[in-house]
Design a protein around this nucleic acid. Structure first.
Lengths: 182, 182
DNA sequence: GTTGGCATGTAACCGGTTACATGATTTT
DNA sequence: AAAATCATGTAACCGGTTACATGCCAAC
């Protein structure tokens, strides 16, 4: 439960507050771009969700519109209340397991297929996870080459790499297992 | 794109078809129970979502009501079309990364905290993941003791264990990293 | 002057959650 | 007779996606 009285998800708010806290004042348009460029791997949101949310956050006192630029551009700034809200979430929020896991459902139902079919599916999954692993490792390489350590996204990137790596190993192990015992 | 023309998620349908294919005819009530008992770790759905979905699936010809029991109980049976739909999804569906990852968002924003605060958060996360890991390994142990290998949920359980294990390692590594380089 | 990027918003819809509502049968 | 469980449904709401809609400004 936060200072404002809601106990549910509201992670979009947190993502927006986080971007404003990390990179300073920005417009809805800027934030939409930042979602695409930086947070996309952990959270996605389009402008049609971001604009109304910023309006609600303004009403709730978490952000303010400090300046209006050309083309109706509104520069949002995080307020002390917003910073407090963000810090509370970061420090007190407890992670809970995702309850809608498409890959997990797929894995769950695999025994419905014939062994050779399941192997084919697992091989495709493995290839996909390997490709994604390369992609993520690519991000880490390019980032580390240019800047110093531990900027935003580094921890999330590391978590992603480890989890996708685990998925590769799972696929590999499952294929071997089916091949051995049919 | 499936035989029925929808290209979007529809994983609830797949979960329901999977349960009907695996365990035979069942009522909406039975399926609700099965969701709680078996699929809960990968997919969740309440009766208020299941009943209307079964009605739609009946209209679409994926299931039929073969018999009606006492108290208006409707026994749903999967049709050949339903089986085909399920097999198509299992064989052709491509996994895509989850786009709304609360743990990932939390990790992403960790650098906003002071090192000692981030360490405290990571330690709580680690404890949580360790507890969940024990829980999942407990499921595997009890299942393997009683029955033969590779029933429903085994692959999903293995995937879950590996991914939660990766999260534990991530938390551990991140803590050490902050302690070292602060 | 036209194209493209900047910039904001709304409306319709879908999937999912919570709460409301009802009634039959079995168990105690 | 009361409580628990079986069994089905609907309504209100929320978060998120897609599509619609508008207009400003800069570059070519």
């Amino acid at each position: 439960m936060s200072i404002l009285g809601y106990s549910w998800v509201m992670s979009l708010r947190i993502a927006l507050l986080g971007l404003l806290a990390a990179a300073g004042p920005a417009s809805g348009y800027d934030l939409t771009k930042k979602f695409e460029l930086s947070v996309a791997h952990v959270w996605q949101a389009g402008h049609s969700q971001i604009y109304p949310e910023l309006a609600k956050m303004t009403v709730d006192g978490l952000v303010t519109v400090e300046a209006e630029g050309p083309r109706g551009r509104k520069l949002y700034t995080i307020t002390p209340e917003g910073t407090a809200e963000l810090r509370t979430w970061l420090i007190e929020h407890n992670v809970s397991p995702p309850v809608r896991n498409e890959a997990g459902l797929h894995a769950f139902l695999l025994p419905l297929l014939e062994p050779h079919e399941a192997i084919a599916v697992l091989q495709r999954m493995k290839a996909y996870y390997e490709a994604r692993l390369s992609e993520l490792e690519g991000f880490r390489a390019t980032k580390h080459a240019s800047e110093h350590r531990h900027r935003f996204g580094d921890y999330a990137l590391d978590l992603g790499i480890r989890q996708v790596g685990a998925a590769v190993e799972w696929a590999d192990h499952s294929i071997a297992d089916i091949e051995r015992s049919g």
